[in-house]
Design a protein around this nucleic acid. Structure first.
Lengths: 338, 338
DNA sequence: GACACCCAAGAGAGCGCTCTCACGAGTCGC
DNA sequence: GCGACTCGTGAGAGCGCTCTCTTGGGTGTC
């Protein structure tokens, strides 16, 4: 009914309605204390009456801030995305913290090769104050390029090469060590592993953990098959492992999904878990409680990875210093599969 | 090394370097054809040399466009988020289409009650050109409020009340009908259902589908237990169903996760699937291929829901008309559980 | 009572871009 | 050969905000 004559109200509109100047209204909007109480009150009323909301574009034009943070999920991440609770969990964690800080979350799904340049252009345009880069394959050049562009960056997972930007990671090694100790303590002697992709740090570190855990068993030979962290690859890898050595009595899988796959293959081939073969996974996704039998696994704090990423980037954006790395603990959750 | 004297290059900088006016450079940047070829060329070179990238804030200040679209995931969605492939799938679909259209995806996770106002304020500030609203509970007022704010909106899933904004949904009814027919055709006579939340349209329509499918069985009494679409609720609901009627010979679950839960309960209580009890789910998430036995389920095109949502919102933003609703087909995928 | 001082409030520039309008040079028609 | 047109280009206003600088009206001090 009451059609606004000239679109949305601006600072000017509010100022006129409240009988104040644009500058004073701006002070009230931004919470300055140097405004007399009664003036501030009448301005606030005018704002409410008119339904005034500041125009962020105009604001960032002058402040050079946008109050938004990009979360970049590279192709490898989005592929896993649909079958894994890891990235949804990280997104929730990041989103939660950013919401509290009143920052926006811009999602950049880098689905194709050409996305690289698109992302770089986007970041160069300063539409975001900072970037959270989720788990990349290998020696990705993106973090370094972003850093070079002068934008605050935090990555999830230690990069393969030298780390040039702050990162959040988890203690892969000690988690896997706990898993291996557990298996050895259970009396298992022929322990195989289903490793993750070796162009990802998580894949490599978990394999390294397996190999060093194996040293507790004099004379034990490594038995490794590689998967891609997803379920089907666990199913296949387990088959290959059993072909290579039918006497395997334990398996450490570098992800819960692959562990679940292994469980299926073992069941199909008549092996009892944990009696014949003990199985341990990594991640502790929700589904791990529901495998058959429930999965013993190395838990990593997925949600906390997200919150920490967000906290670090907010700190960087605010110009504060942050630790070059934060490594979160993992712990072995013992259920029934080992 | 070559430190730029005064920050990032602006249109003005480029104009001076190329010996043209700001207006002409703007024409080239925005692909106008009315610029002489050689002039355009030298401007393009200057842009490349200087590494010029337009400032989106300045641009949207005058164009009143932001080239970004918000995807709002209400609390109910984010809760399910970590255990379901639905929202990740939708996000991917939306992201894919938006990326091609060179639009940004802004994720709004409405985790708390107070988010409602925050979202409204955000949308009022016109930081996004349009809004995609994912699956809400009940008679949510948000779509209507957004529409009233004058922002293009598309929702996923038909709202409970009257639909005031365009939506994308799937054929719940015909999918469930196919499932029920299949069960009846298999000779099942005591068919129960694990329904979804009855404050969500998806939950209600699937229950309605079950009830009308039962009519093919004269004298059959409905046997309904409600879950929340997640796995644990399927486990629990199946227990209650068997307590109420140990002679159940088939179950239709309104989600794959709940179907998987039912499978576990059935196995634990010594029922063979599908011999004793046939089970059909709904969704066809990746995990459905890996349940034990592999799940017969009603497939809905998750990814396409995402792409359609994005296409519709782009159309609305461009000022085009769109259908009041798009209802995508579902189909029964027969595996081994029924 | 005059001077210094402080604090609230306003004036005005300017962030980087788009877009309308005006202008000058070239082209065409008769 | 002169008016009417077209077409590429430039000048300049203005989008809505922040922020510095300035101003004016108290208040305190001696």
């Amino acid at each position: 009914m009451n059609e606004t004559p000239a679109g949305r109200p601006t600072l000017e509109t509010v100022a006129r309605a409240a009988g104040a100047s644009r500058a004073t209204v701006s002070r009230v909007v931004n919470g300055s204390t140097t405004v007399r109480a009664d003036v501030a009150e009448s301005i606030r009323r005018a704002i409410a009456d008119l339904g005034y909301v500041p125009n962020p574009a105009a604001r960032s034009l002058v402040t050079q801030r946008t109050d938004s943070i990009a979360l970049i999920l590279p192709e490898s991440a989005t592929r896993v995305f649909s079958d894994d609770a890891f990235f949804p969990g990280v997104i929730r964690g990041v989103g939660e913290v950013l919401e509290k800080a009143d920052k926006q979350l811009v999602l950049l799904l880098a689905s194709t090769r050409s996305s690289h340049d698109r992302i770089l252009r986007y970041v160069h345009s300063r539409t975001v104050d900072g970037v959270v880069l989720a788990s990349m394959h290998g020696a990705d050049t993106l973090p370094e390029e972003l850093r070079a562009a002068g934008v605050p960056v935090v990555t999830s997972g230690r990069p393969l090469g030298e780390a040039t930007v702050p990162f959040i990671d988890v203690e892969h090694a000690s988690g896997v060590a706990a898993a291996m100790n557990h298996l050895v303590g259970l009396g298992r002697r022929r322990i195989a592993t289903i490793a993750g992709p070796q162009d990802m740090v998580a894949g490599r570190e978990r394999l390294a953990g397996y190999l060093s855990g194996l040293q507790a068993l004099p004379g034990a030979v490594p038995l490794v098959e590689e998967g891609d962290f997803m379920r089907q690859s666990g199913i296949d890898a387990m088959e290959r492992l059993l072909q290579r050595d039918p006497g395997i009595d334990a398996v450490f899988a570098a992800s819960d999904l692959m562990a679940d796959g292994a469980l299926r293959t073992l069941r199909r081939l008549g092996r009892r878990v944990p009696d014949d073969v003990a199985v341990i996974g990594f991640d502790d996704v929700d589904a791990a409680r529901f495998t058959d039998p429930p999965l013993t696994t190395v838990q990593q704090p997925i949600h906390e990875i997200g919150t920490r990423l967000a906290e670090q980037i907010l700190r960087l954006v605010a110009g504060e210093e942050v630790a070059a790395s934060v490594v979160l603990p993992t712990r072995l959750v013992i259920r029934e599969s080992a």
